[in-house]
Design a protein around this nucleic acid. Sequence first.
DNA 1: TACGTTTCTTGAACGCCATGCAAGAGCAAA
DNA 2: TTTGCTCTTGCATGGCGTTCAAGAAACGTA
Lengths: 160, 160
Amino acid sequence: MAAADLFAAVGYEATSMASVARGAGVTTTTIYWYFEDKETLLVAVLDHLLQETLAGLGDRDDESPVDLLMWVVDRLTEQRRLVSTVHALAGRSPTVAVWHDAFHELTDAMLAEGLRQEGVPEPLVPATTRLGVFAIEGLVMHPLSRAEQRAVLELLSTVR
Amino acid sequence: MAAADLFAAVGYEATSMASVARGAGVTTTTIYWYFEDKETLLVAVLDHLLQETLAGLGDRDDESPVDLLMWVVDRLTEQRRLVSTVHALAGRSPTVAVWHDAFHELTDAMLAEGLRQEGVPEPLVPATTRLGVFAIEGLVMHPLSRAEQRAVLELLSTVR
DNA sequence: TACGTTTCTTGAACGCCATGCAAGAGCAAA
DNA sequence: TTTGCTCTTGCATGGCGTTCAAGAAACGTA
């Protein structure tokens, strides 16, 4: 998909529908036959990216929890621009908001399950999950050195 | 400032320079005489809001740390739309990025100082500060009940 | 093979937006 | 009164997301 490349290269906002069409060798109107609007196109790209990432995650359920989180942070950091685009758009576009909510439902559940297997007591799981998600999003959005990232995640693993 | 009202009412993206001008009873060109572009106007509004919030914070340095954080989260949540706008724009606009960095430098320092006074050991201050900031931003961006918010902040205060 | 219907593509438009520019009003100093 | 500066205006420009009427291509049916 040409849109995915452009979103990754210059970002969603800087990508015009005309440039997507040019990249696909068609006209803008053709894009609109397949996707209702630009936001729907974005959601399609997000779904595609999510599939890829989930597949990659399946290949490494052997590593330690912190290493696993670091890997997820790395993948999301590669798409930092899209992440903040989604957050900004979710507040004003129902289309993107639906995807964003579904995404969190999925990832929050995965993290919660991981925490349970690490022995986090059940009543603490919800709040710990949320704090974990917030930490991941924070690490993705604010550039820190690898050591600093790890320090935050290690600190996070001391809550009780 | 008319721009501040419009940004708060409908958001930055949905606010056209024409509507700002109309609200101020002038022409768009006049706005451009005072502000270089729309992003510079945004930064002026952000500065204004920050001044107000800092003043309000000065009136309540008596409350408990968690209550203080809750209050900050409340103020930021009222401006949730602007918060995510700033995050999205900081990645592609130098103007907004500069303001965003300065904002974090200020607020991170304030939080770090608060943590020291709460007895957090010095070597843990940097990572704890970051985790705290991430928690605040997460709470601002994701709607949770008051009890859930408090649970996350209480959990956060148990790290060591 | 021919025809009707559905699927896909196109070029040209529309309305909105942020921004630029040349000209002029208002006003103070000389 | 003239000069020069600050401020405001109307108009224009180029780009954007999106729409629409029209036609081409593909396909099922006879």
